[in-house]
Design a protein around this nucleic acid. Structure first.
Length: 422
RNA sequence: GCGACUAUGGUGUAACGGUUAACACUCGGGUUUGUGGUACCCGCAAUCAGGGUUCGAUUCCCUGUAGUCGCCCCA
């Protein structure tokens, strides 16, 4: 005999048993409802994409080492999407002449990265993507940040639970140019900057000197000597000021924030958990004004952000904000005194379902006592035995399992009780 | 890609270089064939794989595999 098959899911991915999936959908539903009130529409696409979609702009490391890429039977190079933004850009570009801009779109795709799984990081996760396409002004930047904030607040998070850091890729690029950096060293410098907070100051200083003689942060600080830098810095500070005016008090300017993707062009932002127990980046996004133009035509400006389900769930957990989930469980267990009563019970159940009842019909040959145990185990709140007596008399005894209380009532009144959800 | 730690029934734990690997939960059956939750009884079920040390290894050592946690990177 061969080895039995493993029941473990594939490395780094999860099974969602009904209770797990109920928790996920409860979170998704909160997101969907909030996004709907902001006028955002949901879209979707296949997880399979042409490999070249990611080769232009995502980031070298992700494309080279962290994608699931294979060749299909028709010799096409295929990638399991590692992120949604290129797909969005592709879809927008495909229908650019007919779509009503600005677009306010969102999606909750599963995305894949071939990485070493560890805390808060898996090989497949669900990631809310929210995008506002077709508006270049700071007004769109403001909406994106305020919406990001509103999503967390929809779960009951307070402003003090998280902090928003903002920066500008355009500002960083201008500063690099002012420092005389070339394309390659610009990239190296940005990577270093991203790590600054994690390294000792001396180490950062040493690494910095290796790339560049001037200190970029000083250039940004002074700004006066380079008009380009001054202009971009003012743009970021204007956004910050506008946020404050609109009542967002937890945003700060952070010139070391860079974000990983190469396609960002302007504003970038990141939301941080302020809980000392979990002080990490929750999610973020930025402006990608040149991505749609990769598919031809004029550039279409866009800003968006992505929020992973694992980090969001952790955040909600640590702040005790996980939403209550409706598991879709049946409300009523229809027991059958004898197996011969099952067809009649099914017919009766069909009637109740037409009126909206969520009904579970026993199919086992267990005794009624065992059927009640079964109902308790399944967390079904109501129990009715439906056999020959009930069919004839058209009255039932409804048992409330939590209290043991029993009510006799004509079957015509039953749907009222089910609607009440008692 | 690098490093550390861990590996015992379905789950969570226990134990010992030496008879039958223990306990709890879960699961199945029963006391209880038209009405549950308590209680009691019975039952199913495990030392990750391979090699080494040893009279003897689940225990000690090595390798592999898997998992967890860090680094890298990122969500």
């Amino acid at each position: 005999m061969s080895e039995p098959l493993s029941t473990e899911p594939y490395k780094g991915v999860r099974d969602f048993f009904p209770a797990d999936w109920a928790r996920m959908t409860a979170i998704f539903d909160t997101l969907r409802q909030t996004l709907a009130t902001w006028g955002y529409e949901e879209y979707n696409a296949s997880p399979l994409e042409r490999a070249e979609l990611y080769e232009a702009k995502t980031s070298e490391e992700i494309v080279g080492e962290q994608t699931y890429t294979f060749t299909d039977r028709g010799d096409r190079r295929v990638t399991l999407r590692p992120e949604m933004t290129p797909t969005l850009a592709r879809m927008v570009a495909a229908k650019r002449r007919e779509l009503p801009f600005p677009l306010r779109w969102f999606s909750i795709p599963n995305v894949f990265r071939y990485e070493r799984p560890q805390r808060g990081r898996l090989r497949e996760h669900y990631q809310l993507n929210v995008d506002l396409v077709g508006v270049a002004s700071g007004e769109a930047d403001l909406e994106a940040i305020m919406l990001a904030s509103a999503l967390l607040e929809a779960f009951g998070a307070k402003e003090s639970d998280f902090r928003i850091r903002i920066n500008s890729r355009a500002l960083l690029t201008a500063a690099c140019a002012a420092a005389g950096l070339t394309g390659e060293s610009t990239r190296a410098y940005l990577r270093l900057l991203d790590k600054k907070a994690k390294m000792p100051p001396e180490e950062f200083a040493a690494a910095q000197t290796a790339i560049c003689v001037k200190d970029l942060l000083t250039i940004i600080e002074d700004a006066g000597s380079a008009p380009e830098v001054a202009r971009e810095k003012k743009a970021v500070l204007d956004i910050l000021e506008a946020l404050t005016k609109r009542g967002v008090a937890n945003a700060v300017f952070d010139p070391t924030l860079t974000r990983g993707f190469d396609y960002y062009t302007g504003l970038v932002f990141e939301i941080y958990d302020t809980n000392p127990a979990n002080p990490r980046s929750l999610f973020g996004g930025g402006r990608f004004d040149r991505l749609v133009a990769l598919f031809g035509g004029d550039p279409i400006p866009a800003i968006g952000f992505g929020m992973g389900d694992v980090t969001l769930a952790d955040f909600l957990e640590t702040h005790n904000l996980t939403p209550k989930s409706d598991t879709g469980r049946p409300q009523l267990y229809l027991g059958t005194p004898t197996p011969g009563d099952i067809p009649g019970a099914q017919t009766f159940a069909a009637e109740l379902r037409k009126q909206g009842g969520r009904v579970f019909v026993n199919l086992s040959e267990k005794s009624l006592g065992d059927q009640i145990k079964d109902a308790v185990k399944r967390s079904i709140p109501l129990f009715i035995a439906y056999g020959a007596n009930e069919a004839t008399s058209q009255t039932v005894r409804m048992k409330v399992l939590a209290t043991g209380e029993e009510v006799g009532l004509p079957v015509s009144e039953l749907p009222v009780h089910l609607k009440a959800g008692s």
